[in-house]
Design a protein around this nucleic acid. Structure first.
Lengths: 213, 213
DNA sequence: TGTACATCAGTGAACGCGCGTTCACTGATGTAC
DNA sequence: TGTACATCAGTGAACGCGCGTTCACTGATGTAC
């Protein structure tokens, strides 16, 4: 698929509208209206709404995962045999998200909101798509976390990784709403970076907690 | 609204279908078909789909919050001045959920899945509904958590409470899916109670982590 | 250089479908006199 | 006790609407000879 201007405009609009309202609640008509392209262009370029959703994801995740791969490669080359802590691993991941968002504050929020939606809306095809496309990289991150937490049984580590994923996806995908509540309650500003900085030690401590079994 | 058999049947079907597929993806036709009642009965009894969603929530949350109130009252009467730990507070809440689900394993899963959906789907009206209806009880729980974590700044506690909420809502609302992955990966059974037992120390340790600011 | 054809991005209008909602209606039960 | 009326749960069929998708079409650009 050649990346015509129309394709990019559709992806941009779809990305922001999906993040704002969810998948089912966003119509192709609203996407094409915002993108100022013809309604039929979506099906012409992407084939279906489902494929458009996957294309929006691929545009985010492919460079993100490449960035994670690349920075892990570089680190391992420079410091072979060094075992990373969970916080360091999380920092690799979060720095890759930041880099891929290219400084665009909005894209970072969109990224996580989409991830949260993928799990919470009836989009089984998306979960499968993500799992298949990016199995290699997520497997590598899992292995690193396993090395960082040798004291955990595999079973308990599995769940704790998903607890982390949940806390992150929920927080970041509801970021705008939560920040609005926060600023109302405390009358103080609070950036996304602040929240991520607070999230890291929470996740790290949770993962290292004494076993609950 | 008199609780006729029809009303109960609609609520039962709506509850399980919403939890299974989400709100937007569940049509009134599928609800009334499963409930074996007339399509028009939903609008007759509830007025609109929106109000049906809120009624489904109210049926869950009202007894749940009453249960939390009652058990906190009882505990404070028996042990006044005792400061609860975060884990103890969480156990009060989770035991109330269990009691309200009346031993019905499915209802516990549905409960959390609905809560997750309320945050993640475009249901702003639901969040507001929940916040307004149940402000009293959630405020009381917040205060208890504040007493349990006097070392935290209010701002950081706010975020950590939402990290906990996120981890819990995400995990429990995707429980069925996550358990399927787990059983595939490890070839072992795993009950909801097991997962909740593992979640508690994760959340407790996260909340008590050293400050990230 | 000129002509014929192919390819391709994009268009405008319509399609059929499933949706939430409405409405005139039924039939059972309760109430007043 | 009998009759007239009111209330209420529930029904069947239709309404209009917005949806994703389709299709015949246009007009620009590239390619072959």
């Amino acid at each position: 698929m050649a990346h015509s201007d129309t394709v990019t405009r559709i992806l941009d609009s779809a990305e922001s509208l999906f993040a704002e309202r969810g998948f089912a609640e966003t119509s192709l008509r609203s996407i094409t209206a915002q993108a100022e392209v013809n309604l039929a262009a979506v099906n012409y370029h992407f084939g279906s709404k489902k494929s458009l959703i996957q294309a929006v994801f691929a545009r985010f995740f492919t460079p993100f995962y490449q960035m994670v791969e690349a920075s892990l490669d570089m680190h391992e080359k420079r410091h072979p045999e060094v075992i990373l802590t969970v916080e360091e691993i999380l920092r690799f991941v979060s720095r890759s998200i930041s880099k891929v968002s290219e400084g665009d504050r909005r894209r970072l929020a969109i990224f996580m909101r989409l991830l949260g939606l993928a799990y919470n809306q009836g989009q089984g095809h998306l979960r499968k798509f993500l799992q298949n496309e990016y199995r290699a990289v997520s497997g590598r991150v899992m292995d690193l976390i396993a090395k960082a937490t040798p004291e955990l049984k595999d079973e308990e580590r599995f769940w704790r990784i998903h607890f982390m994923l949940g806390a992150a996806a929920f927080t970041l995908s509801n970021m705008e709403h939560l920040r609005a509540i926060f600023e109302h309650d405390f009358d103080t500003q609070c950036t996304e970076e602040d929240v991520v900085a607070m999230l890291m030690p929470f996740l790290g401590a949770g993962v290292r907690a004494q076993s609950g079994l």
